[in-house]
Nucleic acid binder design. Structure first.
Lengths: 132, 132
DNA sequence: CTCAGTGCAAATATTTTGCACTATG
DNA sequence: CATAGTGCAAAATATTTGCACTGAG
């Protein structure tokens, strides 16, 4: 991940292994899953690296519908996520209309809005309708 | 909490203690905080009761800006939250315009939107501007 | 070379569970 | 009174940390 390099952080082989692996990964992931998928990397390093990627914006942490949390690779700047509740696929979306609306809602609220988070839960096109 | 009773769940004194306590509580709370505030209730019961309230809709679980999670008392039906990043206060808001917009965005996404979550992060009116 | 980063194992923290006991309905 | 619910302490999980060692720059 280039973002790491720019921060004066060393590009070590465990970090590279994690970044490469995530690059090809679909959907959300948990630390535990990452550890299983990359047995050559120590658990502590996985924790440390994911935390680092989170700070740098390389991954996002998001809430599933049941309230549990997973990480997901971040591909763009500001964005939101939609998550398939059936297969767990996670995609990003961006919509200027949302930003505009939220900012106008912000005006009606006391105080100043500094950030926001949106998650949409969907049954994605690949998942059978019976999941509904 | 009436919702519990309607579900054929017993109204025991620990549950009542928790519900009463939450009634008067401001902002989000963690299990740990609840345990400290209600030392007479066993930790396991706090976990079990909060999980129950979550299922019944008596409390919501929400993500703070840093990704950590807290619970908050739910006062209305469908709603979203705005959280002060300075003092931790949590309030609910509802906006038909948001629902409308999200549903229209849903049409542009593959699959069917089944639910959503929105959190706004604010500096509330009571908190000094320096927090910005 | 140097020291940020690593792996490991131990220390912590968090959540769940088994079980004998209590009290609601 | 029957049994859902409780508290406790143990077990299972999840996360963090100390430290000697390694390799990126």
């Amino acid at each position: 991940m280039a973002a790491l390099k720019d921060r004066g952080v060393r590009v070590t082989s465990p970090r590279k292994a994690i970044a490469d692996h995530l690059e090809h990964r679909r959907g959300g992931f948990t630390i535990e899953a990452l550890c299983e998928e990359l047995p050559s990397v120590g658990r502590a390093t996985v924790y440390r690296t994911v935390k680092l990627l989170l700070e740098v914006g390389g991954v996002c942490k998001l809430a599933l519908m049941d309230g549990s949390q997973v990480y997901t690779v971040s591909r763009a700047g500001h964005h939101h996520h939609y998550v398939c509740v059936a297969c767990g696929a996670v995609e990003e979306f961006r919509a200027a209309s949302v930003e505009r609306l939220l900012s106008s809602i912000g005006h009606e609220l006391p105080g100043e809005v500094v950030d926001h988070r949106i998650e949409l839960y969907v049954i994605c096109g690949n998942c059978p309708a019976e999941w509904a």
